[in-house]
């Protein structure tokens, strides 16, 4: 099974890897680029734990082939903090105890940032419907929603 050479940008850095056409972008991020922050919870686009942004669009990286990433710019959880400074969402999730096991947290953080990029002042329902594709089994979502809205308020305040 010949593999295809792919060049892309991940978290602002140029990357290259060889991908079997059947490998998903998630497989490539985790197995070829060592970025294990994105998680596989289902492999069918139903849980959102593999969420990344591709050219700014929020997608499930398990529903994108590695070879489709050629020339694209991918943003994963590992790129959310700038240096040592956490993104406000990351800080608020810790502050609000908006995570327990933490397995869904990377996907939810990436999805929440994509939301706030286009809607700086979301209502509770807008946050809940935007995150409906990010399953969490531990928290019952309450503290996650509060943390996202608190981070939004901080970002608006700072803006």
């Amino acid at each position: 099974m010949t593999r295809i050479h792919v060049t892309a940008t991940v978290n602002g850095d140029p990357v290259e890897f060889l991908a079997d056409p059947r490998e998903t972008l998630l497989d490539c991020l985790r197995d070829h680029l060592g970025l294990t922050g994105s998680k596989e919870g289902c492999g069918t686009g139903d849980c959102g734990a593999c969420s990344v942004q591709m050219d700014g669009v929020l997608v499930c990286s398990c529903l994108v082939l590695g070879v489709e990433a050629e020339g694209r710019s991918i943003d994963t959880i590992e790129g959310m903090a700038t240096g040592g400074d956490l993104h406000p969402l990351q800080r608020k999730f810790i502050e609000h105890a908006a995570l327990q096991c933490g397995f869904c947290t990377p996907g939810i953080l990436v999805a929440a940032r994509a939301l706030l990029d286009q809607n700086p002042d979301p209502t509770e329902q807008e946050v809940r419907y935007w995150l409906a594709g990010n399953l969490c089994r531990c928290t019952g979502y309450d503290k996650i929603i509060r943390a996202v809205m608190d981070a939004a308020a901080e970002l608006r305040g700072a803006a």
């Binding site: 970025l35 294990t36 922050g37 994105s38 959310m80 903090a81 956490l86 990351q90 800080r91 995570l99």
Partner: peptide, 16 residues
């Protein structure tokens, strides 16, 4: 919580 930073940055290492 002490493990918060690893979990919100994607550094926490799970089974896979």
């Amino acid at each position: 919580r002490p493990d918060g930073l690893d979990k919100v940055t994607g550094r926490a290492r799970y089974g896979a």
